[in-house]
């Protein structure tokens, strides 16, 4: 029965009195779905777990992340760029170095790309669903006892996403610079294009696409204005990133894969397992 009673005040800001409870319809089972809804969380868990395991190992190992002039290349793994510590192998660093950091240089900087992805609206969806099971799939029960979402500590910190986005942009500039350096072939004709060059270039492009398609970026570009007509430039930016934003999920996955691939490839080259094939 749905009467809406007259109330004295026009807007009532109190919590709605929950007269809304009552027996739910349908059977008391976790889901009535019979399709294979669990496939998607299983795939997400497998890929993300493999990535985390690989990335942790690669970040801690602290070697074979740079293929330098001894191999006639200038290729640095995105996990280690920018390389900022005194322990960075010669040629891999382009700035003053920090001497007190003695463990792997990757661990100094990885917090930023990691934070960017961890607070990303798409990855949030992915891991809340597949790791947290809140919910594992649509209309499948989220069986946590209580739920407060992102309204309290610690998840309220998801709101800092835009700052990671800003840092991400700095990283994109650096990794783009790395991609340009990847054209240099010291002792092999000066410049050229190798498989490594292509990989680092696609890595940089995909990271730009991933960043520009970010929801915070879309908001900051123009989404936050009330009237596009009054802000024509903001509207232009917004219109440019909006179609990218629609593909944010795809960019998130592909760029993740390519980052790992870049690291693995350079690792194989740097360790001498394979030779980076020069195309021209």
């Amino acid at each position: 029965m749905t009467t809406v009673e007259n109330s004295a005040t026009r807007v009532d800001n109190s919590e709605t009195p929950v007269v809304l409870g009552g027996t739910r319809g349908g059977p008391d089972v976790s889901t009535v779905r019979k399709d294979r809804w669990w496939i998607s969380p299983v795939i997400t868990v497998s890929i993300l777990t493999s990535f985390v395991v690989y990335a942790t190992w690669a970040a801690f190992v602290g070697k074979n992340y740079y293929a330098g002039s001894s191999l006639h290349r200038d290729l640095i793994s995105p996990f280690y760029s920018p390389c900022l510590t005194a322990s960075c192998v010669p040629g891999s660093t382009h700035s003053p170095t920090i001497s007190w950091w003695t463990i792997s240089p990757a661990l100094l900087i990885l917090i930023f790309p990691l934070g960017f992805r961890l607070t990303c609206y798409y990855y949030r969806r992915a891991y809340y669903r597949s790791f947290w099971w809140a919910p594992p799939a649509c209309s499948v029960v989220d069986s946590h006892k209580s739920y407060s979402g992102e309204s309290r500590f610690p998840l309220i910190f998801q709101n800092v996403h835009r700052y990671f986005f800003y840092f991400g942009l700095i990283f994109n500039v650096i990794l783009t610079y790395d991609a340009i350096l990847a054209f240099s072939m010291p002792g092999e004709g000066g410049i050229g294009v190798s498989i490594g060059t292509l990989i680092l270039c696609s890595n940089a492009v995909l990271l730009w696409l991933y960043s520009l398609s970010c929801h915070s970026c879309r908001h900051l570009c123009g989404g936050q204005v009330r009237s596009f007509a009054k802000h024509p430039w903001r509207h232009k930016f917004w219109k440019f990133v909006t179609p990218l934003n629609a593909k944010h999920m795809q960019f998130a996955w592909i760029s993740l894969f390519v980052v790992a691939l870049s690291d693995a490839y350079i690792r194989l080259v740097a360790s001498g397992t394979i030779t980076d094939f020069k195309i021209f």
Partner: peptide, 8 residues
């Protein structure tokens, strides 16, 4: 306007 509504 808070009009009373009797639905269904």
């Amino acid at each position: 306007l808070d009009i009373d509504v009797f639905m269904e």
